[in-house]
Design a protein around this nucleic acid. Structure first.
Length: 213
DNA sequence: TTGACGATAGTCT
DNA sequence: GACTATCGTCAAC
């Protein structure tokens, strides 16, 4: 298979770090959509890695049954979700996968956006090593477990501020309009009953670097 | 202290 | 398409 990359046209190699304000909007669905096309950067073990976010899911506690913070359930794991927006919520799934989420909204509002896929931009060699892969292909960073592993994210890093120097987001001028976005139901949450059908998974239309290809 | 259960992915058929 | 590795979390005992 031919991998076309970069898929989008990238104007800037360096970008503007997203400020606190970006994460404080009360509407996590809107933030989820505006995260598409933003650049997620990690510097775990001083290894600079960056990728363009291509696939996300919004989780809106307290009413969203699919959220870990459903009914504002606060535990040692989920307390990070109640932080002010602009923090990373990282948790272990199936004992294997470290899932990377962005906490949004004001303090005590437990909204979060799961990063499901991104297109590698910088530090691909570190991602390949972290994933024990031979080379670059779509499976390197497509799917939430893969994305987290490629970033070097570990559950013990949960709570890290996205305004500091471990993980952060940048705007590098990539324009994603509403017509570039496809909305679908979220994946793997069949137990969430009526909330399972909410179209809160967002992907960049026709972008190859997304899960479930 | 215990046990059931995942916001999955990789391998094998 | 089916199967399963693998372990922290959380609620119940």
């Amino acid at each position: 298979m031919i991998i076309k990359r970069p898929f989008l046209s990238y104007k800037n190699l360096e970008g503007q770090k997203l400020p606190l304000d970006f994460f404080l909007d009360d509407d996590v669905v809107t933030i989820a959509k505006s995260l598409l096309g933003k650049v997620l950067v990690s510097r775990v073990d001083n290894r600079h890695r960056a990728g363009v976010i291509t696939e996300v899911e919004a989780y809106r506690a307290p009413e969203d049954k699919a959220s870990h913070a459903y009914q504002n359930k606060k535990t040692k794991r989920t307390e990070v979700m109640f932080y002010e927006g602009g923090h990373a919520y990282i948790y272990l799934c199936y004992g294997i996968h470290h899932m990377f989420n962005i906490v949004t909204g004001p303090e005590s509002v437990a909204h979060a956006v799961l990063i499901r896929s991104f297109e590698p931009l910088q530090g691909e060699e570190y991602m390949i090593e972290a994933r024990n892969k031979k080379g670059l292909d779509y499976r390197l960073t497509s799917g939430p477990g893969c994305a987290g592993q490629a970033l070097g994210a570990k559950a013990h890093m949960s709570g890290a501020s996205l305004l500091r120097d471990l993980f952060w987001l940048e705007d590098r001028g990539i324009q994603i309009t509403l017509s570039d976005i496809v909305a679908t139901p979220r994946i793997g949450i069949d137990y969430a009953e009526e909330w399972a059908d909410r179209p809160w998974r967002f992907v960049i239309k026709d972008h190859p670097w997304v899960s479930r290809r």
